[in-house]
Write a protein that binds this DNA or RNA. Structure first.
Length: 263
DNA sequence: ACCTAAACCTGGGCGC
DNA sequence: TGCGCCCAGGTTTAGG
């Protein structure tokens, strides 16, 4: 599933491919990913626009247009942005210079929207941004008693972290996923803060996790799936202590942890 | 304000 | 080989 590192990898690859190019034509194979306006109005609005930049906010890709408007894509679970089509293409963006960008989405959880201004996305802080600090994180955790794992998945609390990296960060910090957020002491808050940043930076470095669906714009898998310590490893031995990795359901999400290493 | 759970979807994996 | 069943999950929505 594309989380912050996967979306950032795509952003970096796609930016030089689209920058300065005009959207000449849009082919809609399946209109169901287009949200907020009718597909025909969407096409009318984006055709003729020039892409000047590609930004990322949490798991969203924001195509900045020369008019100051934005084409915003969220990849959901199985969304892809590709330089060549695959079996699940839903929307094709034909660009100047005879290029095309393919939006593919097998399960239709992805969303494509058009905004006349910079979109208000109602998201919590970006964990990799420098203005996200330990004191701020401590303050945020203090007032919440929900399980820490569930809180990390709340995009209004902290944005960009999804199920894979929430599990991995908690393992790295040695914190049990069921712990109430406000029960973490100062040492644990600091450890978790560091773990989140480290995991995300490393996953970007390895071009994301290709657990099931994720591939980059060239259709290539990432490399971080080989470095996962707990996610998807139910009943397999913990790399640290050899105990069996456990799987529980927390807030409707599969949750993996080592019962011995995570307290 | 806070929390829980269903709904949205369909390919892939499993059992038979 | 093929059928039916169930699971995966990011976000939104509804409800308590």
């Amino acid at each position: 599933m594309p989380e912050l590192p996967e979306v950032e990898t795509i952003r970096q690859d796609v930016l030089p491919f689209v920058r300065g190019r005009e959207i000449k034509k849009v082919g809609i194979i399946d209109p169901r990913n287009i949200k907020g306006i009718t597909p025909s109005l969407f096409v009318k609005k984006v055709v003729g626009e020039k892409i000047v930049d590609l930004e990322r906010r949490a798991k969203y890709l924001l195509f900045k247009l020369a008019s100051g408007k934005y084409l915003v894509i969220h990849l959901g679970m199985t969304g892809r942005l590709l330089f060549a089509p695959d079996d699940y293409v839903k929307v094709i963006f034909h660009l100047s210079g005879k290029r095309a960008l393919y939006f593919s989405d097998a399960r239709l959880f992805g969303k494509i929207r058009f905004y006349s201004h910079y979109p208000e996305l109602k998201l919590g802080p970006e964990p990799l941004q420098e203005d996200f600090t330990v004191p701020q994180f401590r303050q945020m955790l203090k007032q919440r008693k929900i399980a820490i794992k569930q809180l990390l998945l709340d995009q209004k609390f902290i944005s960009g972290v999804g199920n894979i990296y929430a599990n991995e960060a908690l393992f790295r910090a040695g914190i049990h996923p069921r712990r109430p957020a406000n029960s973490l002491n100062d040492r644990e808050v600091k450890k978790l803060y560091k773990a989140i940043k480290q995991i995300l930076f490393e996953a970007i470095k390895y071009r994301g996790t290709s657990d099931s669906w994720y591939v980059d714009a060239k259709g290539k898998k990432g490399g971080f799936q080989f470095r996962l310590k707990v996610y998807g490893r139910k009943d397999e031995p913990c790399f640290g202590c050899k105990s069996k990795v456990q799987r529980i359901v927390l807030g409707q999400r599969g949750t993996y942890f080592c019962p011995k290493c995570q307290k």
